[in-house]
Design a protein around this nucleic acid. Structure first.
Lengths: 202, 202
DNA sequence: TGACAAACCACACATTTGTGTGGTATTTTG
DNA sequence: CAAAATACCACACAAATGTGTGGTTTGTCA
């Protein structure tokens, strides 16, 4: 019986979000800080919530230690999910085939809302002349202000997601590989997001 | 009057390192946790150290809040300093011309000792065929186990630091660019470190 | 020499923080 | 319907934690 994030009640989500926010900002909160922030007048109330979140496996704690609240990986939003690979993407980017996580940090991502950011593992050599290699991690920002010459993740008609450079010619956009072996794409496509960071590990 | 890290005494460095370690692992420590870890029998001792570190601008605190110890950017080792540029490096990698910081995280770097890791901004196109472009950030691990075919940061005789691929031929090592416009380097050189990560921000 | 900083200690005290017990009311579920 | 979960509260208590005062010793610097 796996526990799903959707098992959480709205209020439990709010508590979890607050903890996540505080951990991201600085420090995990104390029980009373949680209560004050969310309007609970009793520490017992907060403890009830923490108990629920622990039972659902989203939170870990240490006894008798102040602020010793941790998010489990499942609950953590410091980690951007790596969804599928760029050449074999799904039309909707459901968090179904998460391959792993990339740690996001403000310095890399400029303090973005994590909801709008995800990462894809690049497959293939179609962007090789832009210095993007097979196996690289492409960090993409959704619903972007993508414009001419930006590198974008685009959804094609055949439900493939591909990373290409966006070009405009005579008012019409098309996609261009950075590899002369690949022809430009003039078919219908939808821009999913804009490439903001590339990471390669050796 | 700028404060330099070298202003710190050895003991102060140890305290700072411990705080940094704990923040990286999980939570900032309490005063007593610092004392226990470093063998101080009095909370007053630890407070003296925190006071010194605060005066030197390396640490910030909040009053009456448990574990409310923060490292300032200058002291933070979650941030890897970007030292100079790869083409204009200095023979000793003193932390003198730090251009900025890169956030390191275990997921990117695999929980390395930060002392051994630094970053360089790549200048030039000599590694372009390895997908390393002008302006990229190259994360380097010092004193490495670099071997044949690894990309390394190497110190040349003319005191330049350069990023190249290490090649062995007939038992002798030389450096090779990933760009046919640049000839291989057979002169004397010293391997400083090995490339472990490349980061590119758009 | 005297002033000062570094590097410690002891200990009392205030405040913060976590824990535990025992409630009430409402909603969900078998 | 009864049981369980959710969603709260009050309050006492213990433990953890930060603060403050007042020391000692050692070495450096002017």
């Amino acid at each position: 019986m796996t526990v799903d994030k959707t098992d959480l009640t709205d209020k439990q989500k709010k508590v979890l979000d607050f903890i996540r926010q505080r951990i991201g900002e600085r420090l995990p909160p104390t029980i009373r800080e949680i209560g004050e922030a969310l309007g609970f007048k009793s520490t017992g109330t907060v403890r009830d919530y923490l108990k629920a979140l622990m039972q659902k496996g989203l939170v870990k704690r240490m006894n008798n230690k102040s602020r010793a609240i941790e998010l489990t990986e499942r609950a953590s939003f410091n980690k951007i999910p790596i969804i599928g690979t760029i050449m074999a993407g799904k039309p909707n980017l459901a968090y179904e085939e998460i391959q792993g996580y990339v740690d996001a940090d403000d310095l890399f991502l400029g303090r973005l809302g994590f909801d709008d950011v995800f990462a894809l593992r690049v497959k293939g050599d179609s962007m090789i002349n832009a210095g993007i290699l097979d196996g690289d991690i492409a960090v993409i920002k959704k619903r972007p202000d993508a414009g001419n010459n930006d590198i974008v993740a685009a959804l094609l008609d055949n439900n493939e997601v591909t990373l290409k450079r966006l070009r405009s010619k005579a008012g019409k956009y098309h996609l261009e590989a950075a590899n002369s072996n690949y022809p430009p794409i003039f078919e219908e496509f939808k821009v999913i997001g804009k490439l903001i960071t590339v990471i390669r590990k050796y």
